[in-house]
Amino acid sequence: MSAPGDVPPQILARLRPICRGLPETYEEPAWIGVRWRIRKRTFAHVYAPDPERCPGAGETPTVMTFRVPSDELLGLTADGFPFFRAEWGRNVAGAFLDDHTDWTEIAELITDSYCEMAPKFLVARVAPTPPTT
């Protein structure tokens, strides 16, 4: 069982090229896990939460939080797993990441989150999200 905050290397290996492919982003350790930022704004944060906060999850899950356009938040989170509305922020959602994660969808969500947080001139430089394998 991993400690709270630990992110499995295979998940970081999937997220890094997506996040680093966006203009002027950087990665840094967060208070728990790892986050990607544009300027001083976080657009993706991945971590393993305290198992006591995720009862019934079995092993410590890996969670990624990100920004969603406010008008899309309910549609994304309404069906539940793997998505949820975060306990903070008006437009913050989360996703459980595991062996069944749709990485193409995650790449699109990360790109949308970046576009929510980045200056408009950087958003204009964002290419459409390519399919991920």
Results as ranks from 00 to 15, higher is better:
Met1Ser: 14
Ser2Met: 15
Ala3Tyr: 11
Pro4Gly: 02
Gly5Thr: 00
Gly5Trp: 00
Asp6Gly: 15
Val7His: 01
Gln10Ile: 14
Ile11Gly: 06
Arg14Cys: 04
Arg16Ile: 04
Ile18Ser: 01
Arg20Ala: 15
Arg20Asp: 14
Leu22Ser: 01
Pro23Arg: 01
Thr25Ser: 00
Pro29Ile: 08
Ile32Gly: 15
Gly33Trp: 00
Val34Met: 09
Arg35Gln: 12
Lys40Cys: 13
Arg41Ile: 13
Ala44Asn: 05
His45Lys: 02
Ala48His: 10
Pro49Gly: 06
Pro49Met: 07
Asp50Asn: 07
Asp50Ile: 09
Pro51Phe: 01
Pro55Trp: 00
Gly56Phe: 06
Gly58Tyr: 04
Thr62Ser: 00
Met64Ser: 04
Ser70His: 12
Asp71Gln: 13
Glu72Arg: 11
Leu74Met: 14
Thr77Lys: 10
Asp79Ala: 14
Asp79Thr: 15
Gly80Glu: 02
Phe81Glu: 15
Phe81Arg: 15
Pro82Glu: 04
Arg85Glu: 02
Asn91Glu: 13
Val92Ile: 13
Val92Lys: 12
Ala95Tyr: 09
Phe96Asn: 12
Asp98Gly: 04
Asp99Ile: 09
His100Ala: 14
His100Phe: 15
Thr101Trp: 06
Thr104Ser: 09
Glu105Ser: 13
Leu109Lys: 10
Asp112Arg: 15
Glu116Tyr: 12
Ala118Lys: 00
Pro119Val: 08
Arg125Tyr: 04
Val126Gln: 01
Ala127Met: 12
Thr129Tyr: 06
